[in-house]
Computed example of a mutant assay.
Amino acid sequence: MLYRRTWSYQLFRVVNALIMLAVLAAIIIPFLNLLAISLSESWAIVGGKVGLFPIGFNLDAYFRIFQHPSIKSGFYNSFLQTGLGTAIGLFMLTICAYPLSKTFLKGRKLFILFIMFTMFFSGGLIPTYLVVKSLGLIDTIWAIVLPFCITPYYLLLVMTYFQSIPESLEESAMIDGLNPIQILWRIVIPLSKPVLAAITLFLAIYYWNNWFNAMIYLNSTEKLPVMMIVRNIVAGADLASNGGQSEVTSLSAASLKSAAIMVTTLPVVVLFPFAQKHFAQGVMLGAVKG
């Protein structure tokens, strides 16, 4: 096209490329620096000589982390918490969003208004804690999973996507004798894979990175997720319990913290490239259509 030959279009491409490179550098450079620090020798880290590439090669920080008495149970708890939370959240969002996507539902606008209200105003930490405690969920994995399985924004996103599915498909299915549950399972969900894949990724990352709720609702060390254990390592609270201060002095604290961050972010880094296509499609389609 002719407009692609104009100087304004070429300027736009250059500026756009520079912005994207700056964003990419802001993401990759800290990641590479953490990786380099986690693999470098202690003397180089203490001297501030480590940049984007490691100086020397030292895996002591990683060995120290995996020798932590709670790291195995932490990974198990995190995978269990992420799996349960993502599955329950996806199920609850789907069965709640589908009826709300129907315009003939009585009181639909009122329900949506209540949902949007919770996006801006919440009960707060203390009321939520009292509710969780009254249900007897304190110090259980359900205190981490159930109260946070439905997010209003995700619910509206899925609902908007369901509204974009032609009603003629559902009407034809009803003529063929399918009930609403069968229509949801056999027609709506297969057509909604992009947005459901995006929501799955959102939920999985949320539950995997969730350490604050574990600090509030869990009391037993063996039930803590790996992010909470890493938080204690980064804060320096668990250094003494992992060999004593005499051993810690031989290993840079920065190296230990960087290795802990790398270990816990690795599952997300591995997962994201496989889900990136559905992630982009789901966000765009769910936000625009309807």
Rank of each mutant, 00 (worst) to 15 (best):
F75E: 09
E171G: 00
I138H: 03
S258I: 02
I126T: 14
S40F: 13
A36I: 11
N16H: 06
I216Q: 11
E222F: 09
A214G: 14
I29Y: 10
L32W: 13
V269R: 09
D176R: 01
P147F: 04
F53Q: 10
L2I: 07
T249P: 04
C149H: 06
L52F: 12
F274L: 05
Y3L: 10
K223V: 05
L251T: 08
T249A: 09
L155A: 01
L24N: 04
R231W: 11
L34Q: 14
F12H: 02
N242S: 12
H278A: 12
S42E: 15
P147K: 02
G51F: 14
L84F: 15
F111Y: 14
F111R: 08
I229V: 12
Y207I: 07
A17M: 05
V158G: 07
P69N: 07
V131P: 06
K193R: 10
T249H: 06
E222L: 06
D238P: 04
S258V: 00
S70Q: 14
N77I: 04
A97E: 00
N209W: 13
A61W: 05
V263K: 04
V145M: 03
I29Q: 05
F162W: 02
V158E: 03
I95C: 04
L18F: 12
S172M: 02
V188Q: 07
V263N: 08
L59C: 01
I71K: 02
F121L: 11
L266P: 13
V248H: 04
F272K: 02
M284V: 12
L90K: 03
F120E: 00
V50W: 12
V23Q: 05
A260M: 09
P99L: 00
G56W: 11
T160D: 10
F148R: 11
N232G: 15
I181F: 10
A235T: 03
F114C: 12
R186L: 07
S73G: 15
V46G: 10
I187C: 02
K277L: 00
Y129L: 11
G124D: 08
A275D: 10
A254L: 11
S258W: 05
I189H: 01
A87I: 12
T265R: 03
A260L: 07
Y62Q: 08
P152L: 04
L52W: 12
P69V: 01
A97H: 09
L35M: 13
F12K: 08
G282W: 03
V158Q: 09
M119S: 13
S8N: 02
N16E: 08
V23N: 02
Y9F: 12
L169I: 10
S250Q: 14
L11Y: 11
H278V: 01
I189A: 00
N16L: 04
Y153S: 10
T118E: 06
L137W: 15
Y76Q: 13
P147E: 04
L146S: 05
G48A: 10
L34M: 15
F121M: 12
G236M: 00
Y76D: 11
F212E: 05
F120K: 11
F212C: 01
T118D: 10
L178W: 07
